[in-house]
Each structure stands twice: as C-alpha cells, then as structure tokens.
C-alpha cells in the first residue's frame, strides 16, 4: 500500500463513521446530545494538528544547533591544510 493509499484509507474510515454519526443513521441519545461538537470534529482536529505542526516546526527552528565550534575548527584546519599543501609543493592562491 502506498503512503497515499494509507491516508485515503484512514480518511475514508474516519469520514464514514463521522457521516453516519451526523446524518443520524446511527441512533443514540448520546449522538444527539453531542451533535454540534461531532459536526465540527474534523475542523477541530485539523486546527489542533495545525497548531501542533506550527509549534513543533518553530521549536525545532529555534533549537536548530548552531555549529559555531565546527566552523571555527574548520577555519583552523583550512589554514593548517593550506600551509601543509604549500609545503608539499601545491600552488595555492593567497589566503
């Protein structure tokens, strides 16, 4: 099953149950009492997921490691490399 099919499958199952619940083909006092929240359930879930996604992405953006040390180390190694390569006879442009 492709990833797309998985999503379609889950969505179909969800919306079948949801449709049955709001159209009243399944009868129960509980469903009547909770009709409005159930009606808005898909929208609520989408909004909640959107909030989750935005906070996760923002959190990860702010906590994305800044590799200052790696950059400093690399600069040091570049100098070392250039000096060593020159001593081995490689013609290099000025630093």
């Amino acid at each position: 099953m492709t990833k797309l099919m998985e999503w379609v499958f889950v969505a179909t199952v969800f919306f079948s149950i949801w449709t049955a619940a709001i159209t009243g083909s399944a009868q129960s006092t509980l469903l009547i009492k909770w009709r409005t929240p159930i009606l808005y359930l898909p929208l609520t879930l989408i909004i909640l997921f959107g909030l989750y996604a935005v906070s996760v992405v923002l959190y990860r953006t702010f906590t994305f490691n800044n590799c200052e040390e790696a950059a400093v180390e690399l600069q040091r190694e570049i100098k070392e490399a250039r000096a060593d390569l020159r001593s081995k006879g490689l013609a290099l442009k000025e630093d």
Binding site: A53, V56, V57, L58, R60, T61, F64, N65, N66, C67, E68, A70, A71
Partner: peptide, 20 residues
C-alpha cells in the same frame, strides 16, 4: 549533536518545515 552553521532564521525555518 547535528546542526548547521551559517544559516539564517528563514533558511532554518524552511528546512525544518520541509523536513516536518
């Protein structure tokens, strides 16, 4: 410990967003 150096906020955001 993975990370990046020399990326501004915008590039990090796009990268994290695309990754998510």
């Amino acid at each position: 410990d993975g990370g990046v150096y020399g990326w501004d906020f915008r590039r990090k955001l796009i990268s994290r967003g695309a990754n998510f």
